[in-house]
Simulated assay, not measured.
Amino acid sequence: MFNKKKKEEEPIVENNQVEQEIADVQTEAIEENSTETVEEPIIELSLEEKLQQENSNLNDKYLRLFAEFDNYKRRTQKERVELLQTAGKDVVISLLPVLDDFERALKATENATEVNAIREGVMLVQTKLKSILGQKGLKEMESLNTVFDTDIHEAITKIPAPNDDLKGKVVDELEKGYTLNDKVIRFAKVVVGA
């Protein structure tokens, strides 16, 4: 009998342990469910915060890039204005000796009695000026006895051609035309034979 009671009590203890384990598992499941529902909004908040932080970082980068580009535009515009203001500086510097030659020629004309010497001096100054401008890319257009071309000539008037060979050609040149680096900067003013 004593053994029977012991055997009967043992299953009760085992049942209590099983019930306790079931209760523990249920409690853990409830705790997991309750922590999952509590953690989801926290995860969403942290995700939302991350997105807001990323958005603010991107906005900051955008504003910095925009400001940098704006500064670049201002700097290049300022450099362009400075370049335009000093673009002819090297040409002007190279023409200063010609200006000095003209001043010497004017002083020489005050006491000069011989015209040929003055004429030769002025021709030397003109040659020097043409040479300097030629080095910078300036070229004279040859227009006389060439076919009239509206791309390089400007017709002032038409006159009857003295012979048939000059019809449609330049008979006289009133003002020379010039090109700078093969681009027309001044059209030649010409008289065309009709």
Score class of each variant (00 low, 15 high):
residue 37 T to K: 14
residue 42 I to A: 06
residue 43 I to E: 08
residue 44 E to I: 05
residue 45 L to P: 02
residue 51 L to D: 09
residue 54 E to T: 08
residue 54 E to K: 03
residue 55 N to Q: 13
residue 56 S to N: 10
residue 58 L to Q: 07
residue 63 L to R: 13
residue 65 L to F: 10
residue 66 F to Y: 11
residue 66 F to C: 10
residue 67 A to Q: 12
residue 71 N to I: 11
residue 72 Y to M: 14
residue 72 Y to K: 12
residue 75 R to E: 06
residue 76 T to M: 12
residue 77 Q to D: 08
residue 82 E to D: 11
residue 85 Q to D: 07
residue 86 T to A: 06
residue 89 K to P: 02
residue 90 D to Y: 04
residue 91 V to K: 04
residue 93 I to M: 10
residue 95 L to P: 04
residue 102 F to P: 01
residue 102 F to L: 15
residue 106 L to E: 15
residue 106 L to F: 15
residue 109 T to F: 09
residue 110 E to L: 14
residue 112 A to Q: 03
residue 112 A to S: 15
residue 114 E to M: 08
residue 119 R to S: 13
residue 122 V to K: 00
residue 125 V to W: 01
residue 126 Q to W: 02
residue 127 T to D: 09
residue 128 K to H: 13
residue 131 S to M: 05
residue 132 I to W: 00
residue 134 G to L: 02
residue 135 Q to F: 04
residue 135 Q to S: 12
residue 136 K to Q: 09
residue 137 G to T: 02
residue 137 G to W: 02
residue 138 L to N: 00
residue 139 K to P: 02
residue 140 E to F: 12
residue 141 M to Q: 13
residue 141 M to G: 01
residue 143 S to G: 00
residue 143 S to R: 00
residue 144 L to A: 02
residue 147 V to T: 07
residue 149 D to C: 03
residue 149 D to W: 00
residue 150 T to H: 06
residue 155 A to K: 07
residue 156 I to N: 06
residue 156 I to A: 11
residue 156 I to F: 09
residue 158 K to W: 06
residue 160 P to M: 03
